[in-house]
Design a protein around this nucleic acid. Structure first.
Length: 721
DNA sequence: GAGCACTGC
């Protein structure tokens, strides 16, 4: 197959394509801005200025003639909003079918849907009718009326549990495929399989230029030499970003924090107006650099004759929401804003007004080790694709500059072309459970875009077997396996939730899952104090709720106290608790209860609602019942204390340490179980509960009974040491 | 006394 690189507007076609218009017009960015609405221009102006308009005929032709169309182009082309509209107007939804367009993130899914609804009907009020969205626990669409559905990739995957051939849809568009999220990757494989059975289905994948051919070849089914039988084609659309000048260092830098600081001062001294965005790998380094700027503010404004000042704001996901907002506020007149950010600003959010990017060339990523079953967080060099994405952040409004704190030689020879896809660096238990539930019998034969290692697939099966999701032969069990796949949460929590029925503590387990979801972001808790930066305030705010059993029951206490206060804002304020997060937990509890009513009790509509309320009514179970239900999902994460205050996991014999934010950090109970572990300098465990060793044998005899005597012997030795 | 990148169901 020819591997020529196409210019914008070119299609590798068997027939001639309509010529695109040559004009290149400018307008508002395509990516929905997350923190406030920035729809400024009139819709008419915006739409006619989108580059994608020049390719409308070419696109419709390609979709008609080919089963798969790979649309390549930078952000800002308008493809996300316009392609579904073109297809709708061209009649692709006739016959009661719809178009679905996936996004990797919830916020983009809902905001894009709102914009397209407004585009079509002139009013956002129609969202949920012709145009709708589907994200977990929030469905805003109508299976009869909705013609364009925006969904998160994970939500579409979940729909395949009930509609494995996606018969509702005539066209499936996977957007941002180059991000290689695990859900998008799995959808690619599943769609390739569906295409064998449904010749009418059209697939559009939208990707960054660099890997378009990979996806075209992945979907191409023509084995013959005759390209007129090709089933997949690339359509290339230009973006609307501005040129960005790239600068490299002459020599490798020793200290990139120092280099970033100095480069910022140079820019401030010599360059015209425009804000600066600095990418560093970790939140810790963000804080360090911000502090450095803040303590030198006076000297910095003396750098310029006009004494223009410079102020610096941090940005990372763990930062309290209100503090994040400062990064998005436009800079005051005669001040220059410097945003120091982690990877969050690379794709997840867009900051307007950035003209200069400083790229350290590093990021922190999570890597799963199937050998140890542990997650590692390590700092790595970014990929060239990432570096280009970061640079592009400077060219959204006008031409910009990007300063790379590494040499050009490093860029070409040290950085890899693409980052490792999520599929190949995460625990696959959830993904494989889903594939099994959708009906993929032989996971090793699945058409992966990039296949994960056999070892990580094997480990995932072991994990699924341990929590009863699959049999010894790797076959999905009707119960609890299928039920776990149906529940919209990680399989370990699903297992716990199912067990909660037998232990009569559904209400409590739902509360724990909801609270953990809200607390998921590190450093972020329901308390307004950061557990790391304001540790003292954090601890004293949490103290009234703490119990000796550990973090999980402490979370129940916090939630129950919030309920008892009548969801009072004043109560939250008095206890240093963020009301919005508690509100979120409250909504999540109801959503989880509703899912459980649907999935486990087969209830829908009004009866599901009243059943959900019933599940959430007070039962006051024994604390040990709650912990046993937790153990049913997390017994693999049990550990015994060591003389030095660390712990040894009972399965796998790994050394772990209680994370300083845990209520058990200084108490060192003999036996614990934890919900989460992460390896930094040491392996930290979080969300911990105290357990009795005999409970392990009770909840997981298949793992602990056989080894009971041996393990007990070992424990005796460990404790007597 | 030491600390988690970013998503999603």
């Amino acid at each position: 197959m020819a591997k020529t690189f196409l210019k914008p507007g070119e299609v590798s076609s068997r027939k001639s394509f309509p010529e695109p218009n040559s004009s290149r017009l400018l307008g508002i960015g395509e990516n929905a801005y997350d923190y406030e609405s920035t729809i400024a221009a009139s819709l008419l102006t915006r739409n006619t200025s989108l580059p994608i308009h020049n390719y409308k005929e070419a696109l419709l032709y390609a979709v008609k003639e080919y089963r798969t169309v790979v649309v390549v182009g930078e952000t800002g082309s308008g493809k996300t909003t316009q392609i579904p509209i073109y297809l709708l107007k061209a009649g692709w939804t006739n016959g009661g079918k719809a178009i679905v367009c996936t996004q990797p993130r919830r916020i983009a899914t809902t905001t894009v849907a709102a914009r397209v609804a407004e585009d079509l009907d002139g009013s956002k009020g129609t969202l949920g009718q012709v145009v709708g969205f589907a994200v977990r626990f929030d469905n805003c669409w109508d299976s009869e009326r909705t013609k364009i559905l925006y969904a998160t990739d994970g939500a579409l995957l979940r729909m395949m549990l009930t509609d494995p051939l996606l018969l509702k849809f005539q066209v499936v568009m996977l957007d941002e495929v180059h991000e290689r999220t695990i859900a998008t990757d799995i959808l690619c494989g599943l769609l390739k399989k569906i295409q064998r059975l449904r010749s009418d289905l059209r697939v559009i994948v939208s990707s960054a230029t660099v890997d378009a051919e990979k996806f075209r070849d992945f979907f191409e089914t023509n084995d013959s030499e005759d390209s007129s039988y090709n089933t997949a084609v690339i359509l290339s659309v230009e973006g609307r970003s501005f040129p960005v000048d790239i600068y490299y260092t002459t020599y490798p830098v020793q200290d990139y924090i120092q280099a970033a600081y100095e480069t910022t001062l140079e820019i401030h001294k010599k360059e015209q107006d425009g804000d600066i965005l600095i990418f560093v790998p970790s939140s810790e380094q963000v804080d360090r650099l911000v502090e450095r700027f803040q303590s030198n503010e006076l000297q910095i404004c003396n750098l310029r004759k006009d004494r223009k000042s410079l102020y610096c704001v941090p940005l990372y996901s763990g930062l309290p929401y209100k503090e994040q907002l400062a990064a998005f506020q436009p800079a005051p007149v005669n001040e220059r804003k410097v945003v120091v950010s982690t990877n969050i600003a690379e794709t997840s959010v867009t900051i307007q007004g950035i003209d200069f990017v400083i790229d350290t060339g590093f990021c922190r990523i999570r890597v799963y080790s199937p050998e140890t079953g542990m997650d590692f967080l390590c700092i790595q060099s970014i990929s060239r694709a990432s570096a280009d994405q970061r640079a592009g952040r400077a060219g959204r409004n006008r031409p910009g500059k990007c300063y790379r704190l590494y040499t050009e030689d490093s860029y070409w020879n040290l950085l890899v072309e693409h980052s490792i896809p999520e599929m190949c660096r995460t625990n696959l238990a959830t993904a494989i459970l889903q594939l099994k539930a959708i009906g993929v019998e032989n996971v090793m034969n699945f058409p992966f875009v990039d296949a994960p290692s056999a070892k990580s697939v094997a480990t995932a099966f072991e994990v699924l077997y341990a929590i009863d999701a699959v049999t010894e032969d790797g076959v999905l069990s009707e119960f609890p396996g299928m039920v776990m796949a149906d529940l919209p949460m990680e399989p370990f929590f699903a297992r716990t939730l199912i067990a909660a029925k037998d232990f009569e503590c559904i209400r409590e387990i739902i509360t724990i899952i909801a609270m953990l979801q809200v607390e998921q972001v590190h450093g972020d808790s329901v308390f307004k104090y950061s557990s790391s930066r304001e540790h003292k305030s954090f601890e004293s705010a949490r103290k009234p709720f703490c119990v000796a059993e550990g973090d999980l029951l402490t979370l129940i206490n916090i939630y129950d106290a919030f309920e008892a206060s009548g969801h009072s804002m004043r109560w939250c304020g008095h206890h240093g608790i963020v009301p919005n997060l508690m509100k979120k937990a409250r909504l999540l509890r109801r959503s989880i209860a509703l899912s459980l009513s649907n999935v486990m009790y087969g209830l829908y509509g009004a009866s599901a609602l009243s059943h959900a309320d019933e599940l959430l009514s007070q039962k006051n179970p024994d604390p040990s019942s709650i912990i046993k239900a937790i153990l049913k999902g997390f017994f693999m994460n049990s550990a015994v204390v060591q003389p030095d205050g660390s712990y040894l996991t009972l399965v796998g014999k790994k050394s772990v340490t209680i994370h300083p934010s845990s209520v058990l950090a200084n108490r060192l109970p003999k036996y614990i179980a934890y919900c989460e572990s992460i390896h930094l300098k040491r392996t930290y465990v979080r969300n911990i509960t105290v357990i009795e060793p005999q409970w392990l044998i009770q909840v997981a005899p298949h793992v602990f009974e056989k080894r009971k005597s041996r393990i007990e012997e070992k424990w005796k030795n460990l404790i007597s040491e």
